[in-house]
Design a protein around this nucleic acid. Structure first.
Length: 755
DNA sequence: CTAGGGTTAG
């Protein structure tokens, strides 16, 4: 490549700014530099001293040596020699010295030297710019670039690479674009250094398309460049392109490095399949890089994400050099695979070995505790965290709040939450889980907290809105839901798919199918969650036909139904007497849609058959299912027998249920209610007594309604409400009306049950 | 002759 190109015109905007005044070159103050005597004590044995002349190349080599070995004194000594031999005016020696000071980050000395060099060339300028770049002084980089233009100095590939790096760091795409234009105009876009710098700048700023164009124009792409492109493709989720680059690299005979595999594995392991994953592992072995610790760590993580934690284990134990990340990766794999016990065990082993455990590792272990519901160890870890002084770490505090929240221990979650002053949105989202999980009637309102945080200047994100909406949906609180909807519109989060989906569910559960529908129809696009939400909405609103219609539409749009879709459809069929459709769907789930029914589907089918009045079939269905001894299925059968008022089957099913789950209060209550519903009050009382003898009790279920911001809560048969008498009177009236309108009074058994 | 690019693992 020819040396240089005029860049002045292109960088015109710099031109009018203050030019740097270049002083006359003058010799440095000799007193500042070490004496020759001292230089000799640096044991420069390879230099012949005063007798023989030293070649310019030798000085250059020695300066490189001083940089490579970090020996600043040696470089200074050489500087002194060069002053003595009057060689500093030479551009070659001057540049070498300049580079030396720049590399040692002595920008003051570098600048002084630069000003003293009488004849500067492109290399001189580039070296100085690079010095400021390494010093992260981007203002000076651009300032000197401007001066370089002003003095008509030519830019070459080296200069461009350096300036582009500064543009990347400052995310200055205006200057970067100017350089890019210059690069194209001067025909150096094929240069792999310039190309990689441009790719780095564009992809860091999120312009992968631009980066890709640059990539395609590079003449010869070396491994470094290819590795980087793999990394960026993978990070952007373009897995196929990342693999394409790898394949091209291999077929062109270039040898991949450990980075090649670490990059592709770490960025793609979320989506990589078992086959690809193992092939990558195999290639890493083949190219002899598998022993690199970071690559091993990436493999541990990959296997963990693939659900093959035993491979993670094997990887871990085969590694010759492990570090804390290896341990954390394996623990994380255990957590992900639901092996919380192993995760905890591994952590204790880590402590035993006396390895320092950082906050990232603690967070992973805390996640393990919440995953395996090991609150005992979680509490111990909490103590440990306090002891080692990590309670000021936001990530750890969030993990603790998350753990207590998921363990239905909102009180502890709140204590940790309140005790941390530097709150952020992740922490708030974690405690929302606590509000979602807790069943108790909590006076603390998530919405109040939400407003406090907003006042504190913390911005909600889409997780916040999804969770708050889910909360108001479960509380069936339309007012809160609508308030939140307004917030999402104001903040622009309404357009986010997860938020829109949460809004559909909120409106459906709060009783407004119309708003749910409007939400669904107003969206820009739907994912499977949107469809599921809308199908469920119709289902719980008793509009089975609409649910089935939407199901058809969903399929014609090319969206594959999943477990949730089919469950919602089965429910819709069950509630709406569409039992033939339900049976049909259940039978073709696996063959048509590749969905293997899980226990919830079976429970739904029991309900469906029972509601269709086919109780013997329902019982057969359970016995022939993969879960003949599942309390869930028998409980469902007992419920539906009660609903049908079929005492014979009800008793059969009840007996089986009590055999299967003798320690569950819910089962006793259900059975007792079945007897009571058929008028067998003595039998009912016996079951209740048996339950009490076992010291079982169940928190009473309650219903509630919110009127004018006040929640009115009701438990069966209670008289707590101030207007209790009026309410019961109205209920009696309603019951009469139902009996009058519907001679079949079976449904009336709902009223007057013991709970 | 002297100056230039990049990404790691939880």
């Amino acid at each position: 490549m020819e040396a240089a190109f005029g860049a002045t015109a292109l960088l015109h905007p710099f031109k009018t700014q203050n030019p740097l005044l270049l002083p006359q070159a003058k010799l440095p103050d000799k007193a500042k530099y070490p004496s020759l005597k001292r230089v000799r004590s640096c044991s420069i044995s390879s230099i012949s001293t005063d007798k023989e002349p030293v070649l310019a190349e030798d000085w250059s080599r020695l300066l490189k040596l001083s940089i490579g070995s970090g020996n600043f004194l040696l470089g200074q000594a050489i500087h002194a020699f060069l002053i003595k031999s009057n060689s500093t005016n030479d551009a070659f020696q001057g540049n070498n010295l300049l580079n030396f000071y720049a590399k040692f980050n002595e920008l003051g000395d570098a600048r002084k030297l630069f000003d003293e060099i009488p004849v500067r060339n492109t290399i001189t300028w580039t070296t100085l710019i690079k010095g400021y770049l390494d010093n992260e002084d981007y203002k000076s980089v651009f300032g000197i670039t401007h001066d370089m233009c002003f003095y008509g100095e030519k830019f070459n590939e080296h200069t461009c690479s350096v300036i582009l790096e500064a543009c990347r760091e400052e995310e200055d795409l205006i200057r970067g674009g100017q350089i890019h234009g210059f690069v194209i105009k001067s025909g150096i876009q094929q240069n792999v250094f310039v190309g990689t710098s441009l790719i780095s700048m564009y992809s860091t700023s999120g312009f992968l398309n631009e980066a890709e164009k640059v990539f395609d124009n590079i003449g010869f792409k070396d491994v470094q460049c290819l590795n980087y492109m793999i990394f960026q493709y993978g990070k952007a989720g373009c897995m196929e392109k990342a693999f394409r680059v790898l394949v091209d690299m291999l077929s062109s005979g270039l040898e991949p490095t450990d980075y090649t595999f670490t990059n592709i594995i770490s960025t793609c392991s979320e989506n990589v399949g078992i086959d690809e994953g193992r092939q990558l592992h195999g290639l890493a072995v083949k190219f002899g890089v598998v022993n690199v610790t970071s690559l091993g760590n990436a493999l541990i993580t990959m296997y963990g994400k693939l659900g093959m934690v035993e491979y993670s284990e094997r990887m871990f134990y085969s590694m010759s050099e492990k570090n804390l990340i290896s341990w954390t990766a394996l623990i994380s794999g255990y957590v992900r695979s639901g092996c919380g016990e192993n995760a905890v065990h591994m952590f204790l082993e880590l402590l035993d070995q006396g390895i320092y455990c950082d906050s990232g590792c603690l967070v992973t272990v805390l996640d393990g505790c919440s995953e395996c519901r090991n609150l005992d160890l979680g509490v111990q870890l909490h103590a440990f965290v306090i002891k080692v002084g990590h309670l000021c770490d936001g990530n750890i505090v969030t993990a603790l709040v998350d753990m207590y929240s998921k363990s239905d221990n909102l009180t502890s979650a709140k204590i940790v939450f309140d005790g941390f002053s530097n709150k952020n949105i992740a922490l708030f989202n974690a405690i929302l889980v606590g509000f979602m999980v807790t069943k108790r009637d909590d006076n603390e309102d998530a919405m109040v907290l939400f407003h406090q945080l907003r006042l504190g200047g913390i911005k909600p994100d889409l997780v916040t809105f999804s969770r708050l909406l889910s909360l108001s949906a479960n509380q069936a609180c339309l007012v809160k839901g609508k308030t939140l909807h307004a917030y999402t519109i104001k903040t622009g989060f309404e357009a986010e798919l997860t938020v829109s989906n949460a809004l559909i569910t909120m409106y459906a559960k709060c009783g407004s199918i119309k708003d749910a529908c409007q939400m669904f129809n107003g969206m820009n696009g739907h994912d499977s969650v949107s469809w599921n939400a809308m199908v469920s909405a119709y289902s719980i609103h008793g509009q089975g036909k609409m649910a089935l219609l939407l199901f058809k539409e969903m399929k014609s749009e090319g969206i594959a139904p999943d477990e949730i879709t089919t469950l919602a459809i089965l429910q819709a069929c069950s509630y709406n007497g569409l039992w033939q459709d339900g049976i049909c769907l259940f039978n073709e789930m696996e063959s048509n849609y590749g969905i293997r029914p899980v226990i919830e589907h079976f429970a739904c089918m029991v309900d469906l058959l029972g509601r269709a009045g086919r109780l013997p079939e329902a019982m057969n269905f359970i016995n022939n299912s993969p879960f003949p001894d599942s309390p869930l299925l028998w409980r469902t059968l007992v419920s539906v027998c009660k609903l049908q008022g079929d005492l014979g089957f009800g008793m059969l099913a009840s007996k089986k249920l009590l055999d299967l789950s003798p320690a569950e209060a819910g089962s006793y209550i259900l059975v007792s209610n079945t007897y009571a519903g058929s008028g067998m009050l003595d039998e009912a009382a016996k079951v209740r007594t048996a339950m009490n003898d076992l010291n079982l009790s169940k928190v009473a279920g309650c219903s509630w309604i919110e009127i004018d911001n006040k929640v009115h809560c009701f438990v069966a048969s209670d008289n707590d409400h101030p207007e209790s008498r009026e309410i019961y009177a109205k209920l009696d009236l309603l019951m009469d009306e139902i009996r009058w309108k519907n001679c079949d009074t079976k449904n009336a058994h709902f009223i007057g049950e013991i709970v």
